[in-house]
Design a protein around this nucleic acid. Sequence first.
DNA 1: CAGGGTCGTTAGCGCTCGTTAACCTGAGGG
DNA 2: CCCTCAGGTTAACGAGCGCTAACGACCCTG
Lengths: 214, 214
Amino acid sequence: MSTHAAARVAAPTRREQILREAARLFAERGFHGVGVDEIGAAVGISGPGLYRHFPGKDAMLAELLVGISERLLDGGRLRVSEDASRGDGSPEALLDALIEGHIDFALDDRPLITLHDRELDRLRDTDRKRVRRLQREYVEVWVGVVRALYPGLPENEARVTVHAVFGLLNSTPHLARPEARPGREATAALLHRLARGAFAAAVDPSRAVVVDPS
Amino acid sequence: MSTHAAARVAAPTRREQILREAARLFAERGFHGVGVDEIGAAVGISGPGLYRHFPGKDAMLAELLVGISERLLDGGRLRVSEDASRGDGSPEALLDALIEGHIDFALDDRPLITLHDRELDRLRDTDRKRVRRLQREYVEVWVGVVRALYPGLPENEARVTVHAVFGLLNSTPHLARPEARPGREATAALLHRLARGAFAAAVDPSRAVVVDPS
DNA sequence: CAGGGTCGTTAGCGCTCGTTAACCTGAGGG
DNA sequence: CCCTCAGGTTAACGAGCGCTAACGACCCTG
């Protein structure tokens, strides 16, 4: 998480610029809805100049999607291993850490989150399989933690629940007016509560009713 | 003009066939990723024959998105008015009814749900504004019910929560292997629990204004 | 049987898109 | 001073797209 800020010290290379703008444009208008000339214009060069950096338009999307999926999976695995290496690791705290990490990603890299579940089918077979595998492994990391916390939850229900919580956490990019929502930290805290509430309700319906906290 | 009555029960009309297949294809490969020839082939005619039924490819997408949005909004409003006309209407039961209706939609019309939040930006300005308005009104229906049930929840947090729950309920189309999840009714019940759990958790426990459960 | 409407067909036009080809320029090294 | 090479440029090509034009088969109805 602190590494994220540190990596931004140096000026972004041209490749990174291109990927950044391509992600934004793809998220806004869809992969097929953006032309290479537009991507070039967004970074100050024009059209075919992109081919000095990428073998083709497909390759940009592929690199974006593989990158996202790897970052998510690596982050998830890192948190699991941190929790395991810490003596007092608890499933509760670990699930919170996973949720926290995913929320950071959803709030800070909105175009990528959008692309991640929207443009997967535009990839060539080999890339799509690779991304699918990374996504599946990321889900399995969550499923493992959720089932450690709620042993009574059947595996297929846990998987559906994890998918549903992803949908919940990834919902912010779809908000029409981003200025109409609470600040970043308040939104993050709210999403975190919602996710925990959903997980709690997955196993125990009685927790789905509001109770007096006092 | 053909007979209206005959089309009610009998085989779907050609227009409906086209819309159905177009929805499936658009959801699978994106609006720009599907050609008119493919849509035609999917209903047994070929290419330009579609123009006997629609003025253009855009019009198919527009009719699909407007139709979805209207169906959702009408369903929501219907349930609210039913609840109001029933003497014993309670926000609890009303929210359950809204959730139920949305789940039915998400499970039974998966391509439409996918299109609904994915291809909106491919519409012409006038159609897009119309769909946006319908979607916004649908959200407001939910927000009203949620705030009636949880008066302590601020309006902007309620709105984010409703969006998040939509993301949760709409997550099933993204499941890679639909056969790996529980049956329809079990999935519906699970999603219902998750949604209720998320709403219950929306109210920050430390700030909760608790309504008398009598 | 004539005539029109409906619902198709095929051919092809015009445009846009991703990509390639050929050329240019400025910086660094021997 | 020349050569190389990275990183651009513009021109243009070929494919694929949405859509139109022109035509035809079929089914009514009078």
